[in-house]
Design a protein around this nucleic acid. Structure first.
Length: 279
DNA sequence: AGTATCTCCTGCGTGC
DNA sequence: TGCACGCAGGAGATAC
């Protein structure tokens, strides 16, 4: 489900409910999601302390208290929502965090359990094994055409897989990879090492533009994405290629096509993204 | 080291 | 109505 804009939307939506509050009780109905949930550590180190920071890094959400960070990943199907404690847990509501003051709780629901909840016992979480290999934030100043071109050199994999690699740049998932390549006029199968500097510049601009637009629209709701307040996103109304196979390209009228790359569906316009890679 | 494939899990749509 | 199958927004693990 969630790519960077969705996690950013959740982060912004949750901030007013969490910052300055404490988590006074934790109910875990499952011992593990992708990995075991360190319930004991969380109860010992996280409970009872004021939440002083809420941060996103790539697709990770970090909730900071004195002495460490609770790290969330939503995987493919994860949701975080704030609701009243009187509401009974639903299917796949794996963890409840009771918030104080007030009568609310934060619920972590994840149907497919590809998500994660971990504890990082450090003041600075960047050294954590999951975070340290991550590439630059796509909306940050480190992510430039020159940087991407440098990373792209002498590599043969398809550019779509390249930009979905979190070590290259974080937060670009399957939807926004297709959308960004369309905007940049680059065929998804183009060999990474064949990208010119100007193509890399265009691609970086496209990724930034697409992600920024998606954040502005509150993310993309294809099936059931909701922000922390239960509201859907609206970027799906703007999608140019994702999920539009067989429909006409809005720029050139050609039929949007689909192919599979790295076990994932990819969408592109054969008119605007020619296989030669020059568009 | 770089690349491609497999894997975790549930639910939904499609076709027979 | 039932069943098999393929696919779904992620990304670590594994096998070349």
């Amino acid at each position: 489900m969630p790519e960077l804009p969705e996690v950013e939307t959740v982060c912004r939506g949750l901030a007013p409910h969490l910052l300055g509050n404490k988590v006074t009780k934790m109910v875990a109905r499952r011992a593990s999601l992708r990995w075991p949930i360190p319930i004991k550590e969380l109860k010992q180190s996280f409970l009872g302390k004021e939440i002083v920071a809420l941060r996103r890094r790539g697709k990770y959400l970090l909730m900071g208290v004195e002495g460490g960070w609770a790290l969330f990943h939503l995987g493919m199907s994860g949701h975080l929502r704030v609701e009243e404690r009187t509401i009974k847990p639903r299917k796949h509501d794996h963890v409840d965090l009771h918030l104080s003051p007030g009568e609310d709780l934060l619920r972590f629901n994840d149907t497919r359990r590809f998500g994660a909840l971990l504890w990082i016992p450090e003041a600075e979480p960047e050294r954590h094994v999951l975070l340290s290999p991550l590439g630059p934030e796509p909306l940050g100043e480190m992510f430039t055409g020159r940087y991407l071109h440098g990373r792209a050199k002498a590599r043969r994999l398809a550019v779509k897989n390249f930009i979905m690699d979190g070590r290259v740049v974080v937060g670009v998932g399957n939807i926004y990879a297709s959308e960004s390549l369309y905007m940049a006029g680059i065929h998804p199968e183009t060999a990474t090492g064949a990208l010119s500097l100007s193509q890399c510049v265009r691609l970086v601009e496209a990724i930034r533009e697409i992600l920024a637009q998606a954040i502005e629209k509150g993310g993309t709701t294809l099936r059931d994405f909701r922000n922390g307040e239960g509201k859907p996103g609206y970027f799906q109304q703007v999608l140019a290629v994702y999920g539009r196979q067989g429909e006409p390209c809005r720029q050139c009228g050609a039929e949007i096509q689909t192919l599979r790359l790295g076990q994932r569906s990819s969408f592109f316009c054969p008119g605007c993204q020619p296989a030669s890679g020059h568009g």
